[in-house]
């Protein structure tokens, strides 16, 4: 009786899982075998392995890599020093608030800042320099993306650093390790889980950005996300779009496995 009523209560949840988790992925896989006329074909996969989509994938990975590296370089020291402040929760809150502001608005701000008649160019002319094309360049794309992802990288790293027992750092210092050695041998290994979580939260979305590429990079940068959006909403070639989506899902799973430090945490929680 007990279990029966519980299962009954779970019906909406199971229904959600089947309809919106399992079915969509299956549908994407299914659609990837059809061409634009609705005929069964393997051409989409052939097409993917032909030159254009492979180089697109490579460049998308390269951009995602650069974005992740810069985000990490900025976020780690920030997270580290936040844990050293007296009011660390307040500082963390202050750093996190911008991530709650609508993404579109933040991106839109950069159209004004980087534009031909924008603030940066006004400063340049004031300094007697020539106006530069900043918007619609690789630089602006990477800058804006890093800006967007910084809070998402800071949060998991902060949590990892916050859990770190300061006694370990003191012990390392007392035993004569230099600050650099302490960082490399003690702090970094113990916080690498947070870094991995941060990379997960940055790299996968960076592969699939399409709004920022359209608004900030013009059509100069094409990520996997942009290609999917293009196929689905512009060209209306759902088959090709699904094929790219299949590969994006595969890449996502690989990245999850590579950065899969979180499994342990999950199991521990599951033991209750």
């Amino acid at each position: 009786m007990e279990t029966k009523s519980r299962t009954f209560l779970m019906v909406p949840y199971y229904l959600w899982m089947v309809l919106f988790v399992v079915a969509p992925i299956a549908l994407v896989g299914y659609y990837s075998f059809f061409d634009i006329q609705g005929n069964f074909t393997l051409a989409n996969y052939q097409n993917f392995f032909s030159g254009t989509y492979l180089s697109l994938t490579l460049s998308s990975f390269w951009y995602a890599f650069l974005i992740t590296v810069f985000t990490l370089l900025i976020a780690y020291p920030t997270a580290y020093w936040i844990t050293k402040t007296k009011q660390k929760q307040l500082w963390l809150l202050l750093i996190i608030i911008p991530s709650w502001i609508n993404l579109l608005l933040k991106t839109y701000a950069f159209i004004g800042i980087f534009g031909m008649n924008g603030s940066i160019n006004n400063v340049l002319t004031f300094l007697g320099l020539e106006r530069q094309q900043i918007l619609y360049t690789d630089f602006s794309f990477i800058f804006v993306s890093v800006y967007i992802f910084i809070p998402f990288m800071i949060l998991p790293i902060f949590n990892a650093l916050d859990k770190l027992n300061p006694g370990l750092v003191d012990a390392s210092n007392d035993l004569g390790a230099s600050q650099w050695v302490t960082f490399r041998k003690v702090i970094w290994p113990l916080t690498v889980g947070g870094v991995k979580a941060g990379i997960q939260a940055t790299f996968i979305p960076a592969l699939s950005l399409f709004m920022i590429t359209r608004l900030i990079a013009g059509n100069k940068v094409i990520t996997l996300g942009t290609a999917i959006e293009q196929q689905f909403l512009v060209t209306q070639n759902w088959g090709m779009g699904s094929t790219i989506a299949v590969f994006l899902i595969v890449f996502m799973v690989i990245i999850m496995i590579l950065t899969g430090d979180r499994e342990k945490g999950g199991n521990q929680r599951g033991n209750y």
Binding site: P24, I25, L27, V28, Q200, I204, P205, L207, S208, F210, L224, G225, I228, E229, F232, G241, S242, A245, L248, I249, M252, M256
Partner: peptide
């Protein structure tokens, strides 16, 4: 963990 594009398209 799925990218928004995948969720949207599927």
């Amino acid at each position: 963990v799925s990218p928004d594009v995948i969720i949207g398209a599927s």
